[in-house]
Design a protein around this nucleic acid. Structure first.
Length: 625
DNA sequence: GTGGAACGTT
C-alpha cells in the first residue's frame, strides 16, 4: 500500500485531496498528528484555512504540527493566526514549549504585524531558555530589530553574539542598507571577508544595493567583479541582474546599465527596466523614460509608479495624473507609493476634485507594504495646497497618535502657515512637542513662516534661537530667510540687515529680495539701494527682482532711477520664464499665464477678480502691487 | 515530517 504522502503527491485537484481526507475520517485516522501531517501540509500552500480546520480536529497536536502551521501563517497574509496558535500551544494540556523552530516564525509574525513589544517579550523568553545561541533564532532577532528600525540593537546583538553564519552577515548588510546606513554595511562586509565567510548571491545583491544608495560606482565595479568571479558572465539570478542594473543606473552610468540589460540574455526583469526608467526621468529626460516605459515587455505597479514619479520630478503633473488614471482604468491596484505620488501631483496642480476622489477611494485601502502614514501625509498636504485647509485640519485631527509623524506635522504646519493661521500653527507645534515628535528643518521653516505671516515677532525670535540649543537643528539659509522676512515685515529693517551680515553663509537672492520688499513697504531707500545692488551682482538672473525694484522706485517718486533699471533690464534682455497657473473647476483643469486673455471666460473672470479686490479693500485689506 | 536572508517606485 502506498503511503499517504505518495498518494497526495499524485493529487492533481483539491477534490482528490478532499477524498483522501474523507477516507482518513472513515478509517478514524483524522485524530492522529502523524497521519494528518501530510494532508495539512498539502492544503497549506493554497488552502491554509482548510489546513487549520484539519488541525483543529486533532485532539493532541504535537510540536511539529504547531511549528508547521505557525510557519505557514507567519508567511501568509494573516500572521496573527500564528500568534493565536502559539497561545493555544502554551495553554494546551500538557503545555507544549516552543523550540528553536518556533521562535523565528513568531518573530516574523510580530514584524509583519508591527508588534514590537510582543517581539521583545518573546526575545527575553529566548534569552532565558538559551535559544539565543541558535543561529536561526539569532538571525530572526536581527531581522525583527531591522524591521522595527532599531539599527542600534541589531548591531549590538550581532556583535555580542557567539554564533554567526553567512545569513547573519547577509541580514546585517541588507538591514543596514535599508536603514540608510550603507556605509556601515560595507564595514560589516569587511568583517565578513576578514572572518573568511564565503559570499553568496544574497550578499552580492545587498552590496550592490549599498553601492546604489551611496552612488559609489568604484565599489560597484568591484562588486560586479565579485559577481563575475562567483557566477561567471551569464547568470540565472534575475534579482542579482536587476540589482546590478540598478547600481549602474543610480551611479549615473546609464549606458553601462543598458548594456547589462541587453547582454543579460533576457534575464533582467521588470525591476531592471524600472531602474532605467526612473534614472532617465531623474536626469530630466522624461521622453526617453517614457519611450523605455512603453517598450517594456512587462509592467507592474512599481514601474507605473516610477514613471508617474518621474513626471512629477520633471514638473509634468498633468502627464503624471493621466498615467495614474490610466493605471486605475486598467484594473491595476495602485500601492501607497503610487497614490502618494498622484496626490502630490494634485497638490501641485490645485486639483482638489481629483485629489478628493483619490482620498476617498483609498482611505480604507489595505496595502501590502503600506503604512498609511505616507498616504495621510499626502492627503493633508493635498488639501492644504489646494486651499482647503479646513479639510486638511479635519483629516489631521482624526489621525491616530501612533500614525502621526514629523512629516505629517510638517504638512499641516506648512498648510497653516500658508493660510496665515500663525497662532493655530503654534498650538499644533505645542501638541507635537507633547507627543514627543522631534521637529526637523522643515518644521522650523513652516513655523517661522507662520510667525512671519502673522507678525508673531517674539515667537519667531524665540523659536529661531531655540532651534539649535533646544532641538539640535542648525539653521539653514531658509531659516535665515524666514527671519529676514519676519523682521522686515515688522519694520525691523536694521535688525534684518544685521542678521544678514552675521549669517554663517552669503545671503542668496531670495533673502535680498525679501529685504528689498520690506524696504519698499517701510520706505527705506538707502537699504533698498544696497539690497538691489547685491541683487544685481548675483549671477543667476531673475527678471522679477528688477521689476520689483523699479516698481518700488516709482512708488517712491524716483521715476528716473526706475526708468534706468527698466532700461538695464531691457538691455541685458532678461527674460522671466512664463509661470503657468492651473485651476481645476468641476473636474476640468484650466491652464493659464499671467495676463492671458485667451480663455473663453476671461472677461467674466476679470470682472469677478475686480469684485474680489474691491471686497477685500472694503474690509480693510491692503493689496500690494 | 517543520527553519533563516535578496532587486526596482515616494
Amino acid at each position: 500500500m502506498k503511503s499517504l504522502k505518495a498518494v497526495l503527491a499524485s493529487c492533481k485537484t483539491i477534490h482528490q485531496a478532499l477524498q483522501i481526507h474523507a477516507q482518513a475520517v472513515v478509517t478514524g485516522r483524522h485524530h492522529h498528528p502523524f497521519h494528518m501531517a501530510p494532508l495539512i501540509s498539502f492544503f497549506a500552500t493554497n488552502h491554509l484555512h482548510h489546513s487549520h480546520l484539519l488541525f483543529s480536529q486533532i485532539p493532541n497536536p504535537d510540536l511539529f504540527l504547531f511549528n508547521f502551521l505557525i510557519r505557514a501563517f507567519s508567511l501568509s497574509q494573516t500572521p496573527h493566526h500564528a500568534l493565536s496558535l502559539f497561545r493555544s500551544m502554551l495553554s494546551s494540556s500538557p503545555p507544549i514549549s516552543p523550540d528553536s523552530f518556533t521562535f523565528p516564525f513568531l518573530f516574523k509574525s510580530c514584524a509583519k504585524l508591527s508588534l514590537s513589544k510582543l517581539a521583545l517579550q518573546l526575545y527575553s523568553h529566548v534569552i532565558k531558555t538559551g535559544f539565543d545561541s541558535n543561529v536561526f533564532v539569532l538571525n530572526a532577532v536581527l531581522h525583527f530589530y531591522f524591521a522595527f528600525g532599531d539599527v542600534h540593537n541589531a548591531c549590538k546583538v550581532f556583535h555580542e553574539s557567539s554564533v554567526r553564519d553567512r545569513v547573519s552577515y547577509n541580514t546585517m548588510i541588507n538591514g543596514l542598507v535599508r536603514a540608510g546606513r550603507a556605509d556601515c554595511s560595507l564595514k560589516v562586509f569587511g568583517e565578513m571577508r576578514g572572518n573568511r565567510v564565503e559570499v553568496d548571491e544574497y550578499t552580492l545583491v545587498a552590496l550592490l544595493s549599498a553601492c546604489s544608495s551611496l552612488e559609489d560606482r568604484g565599489t560597484g565595479r568591484v562588486v560586479h567583479g565579485l559577481v563575475y568571479r562567483k557566477l561567471g558572465c551569464v547568470n540565472e539570478n534575475e534579482l542579482l541582474m536587476n540589482a546590478l542594473v540598478d547600481m549602474y543606473a543610480k551611479c549615473g552610468c546609464l549606458e553601462v546599465a543598458e548594456r547589462v540589460v541587453s547582454c543579460g540574455n533576457g534575464k533582467s526583469g521588470v525591476a531592471a527596466w524600472t531602474s532605467l526608467v526612473s534614472a532617465y526621468a531623474l536626469r530630466g529626460e522624461v521622453e526617453v523614460a517614457r519611450r523605455l516605459f512603453d517598450q517594456m515587455g512587462e509592467r507592474d505597479v512599481v514601474s507605473w509608479t516610477a514613471m508617474i514619479s518621474g513626471y512629477c520630478n520633471s514638473g509634468c503633473f498633468q502627464e503624471a495624473l493621466e498615467l495614474f488614471v490610466k493605471l486605475e482604468s486598467l484594473g491595476m491596484e495602485p500601492d501607497e507609493v503610487a497614490v502618494v505620488a498622484a496626490l502630490a501631483a494634485c497638490a501641485r496642480l490645485g486639483g482638489l476634485e481629483l485629489g478628493r476622489r483619490i482620498h476617498r477611494k483609498y482611505d480604507g485601502a489595505s496595502w501590502r507594504c503600506g503604512t498609511h502614514r505616507g498616504f495621510t501625509c499626502a492627503v493633508v498636504d493635498m488639501y492644504a495646497k489646494c486651499g482647503s485647509i479646513d479639510t486638511a485640519l479635519d483629516v489631521f485631527s482624526r489621525t491616530r497618535d501612533d500614525m502621526r509623524t514629523t512629516f505629517l506635522y510638517n504638512s499641516i504646519l506648512s498648510g497653516l502657515a500658508h493660510h496665515g493661521l500663525g497662532e493655530h500653527a503654534m498650538a499644533v507645534f505645542e501638541e507635537m512637542r507633547l507627543l514627543g515628535l522631534e521637529p526637523d528643518e522643515v518644521t522650523f521653516v513652516a513655523l517661522l513662516c507662520a510667525c512671519g505671516h502673522n507678525g508673531l515677532v517674539n515667537d519667531g525670535k524665540r523659536l529661531f534661537e531655540s532651534m539649535l540649543s533646544v532641538y539640535g537643528v542648525s539653521p539653514q539659509m531658509e531659516h535665515y530667510g524666514c527671519m529676514v522676512d519676519l523682521l522686515g515685515r515688522a519694520g525691523g529693517l536694521d535688525e534684518a540687515y544685521y542678521l544678514i551680515q552675521n549669517m554663517p553663509f552669503r545671503a542668496n537672492a531670495v533673502i535680498w529680495r525679501s529685504l528689498l520688499s520690506a524696504c519698499k513697504e517701510h520706505g527705506d531707500v538707502t537699504l533698498a539701494r544696497l539690497a538691489s545692488q547685491e541683487l544685481l551682482a548675483m549671477e543667476h538672473d531673475h527678471g522679477a527682482r528688477n521689476v520689483l525694484l523699479s516698481n518700488m522706485l516709482i512708488l517712491m517718486d524716483k521715476h528716473d532711477e526706475a526708468a534706468s533699471v527698466r532700461k538695464a533690464v531691457d538691455d541685458v534682455g532678461i527674460q522671466k520664464p512664463p509661470g503657468w497657473s492651473y485651476v481645476e473647476i468641476n473636474g476640468v483643469l484650466h491652464k493659464f499665464l499671467a495676463g492671458d486673455t485667451s480663455h473663453p471666460e476671461a472677461k467674466a473672470t476679470e470682472l469677478m477678480l475686480r469684485n474680489i479686490h474691491m471686497g477685500l479693500e472694503t474690509i480693510g485689506h491692503v493689496i500690494s502691487a
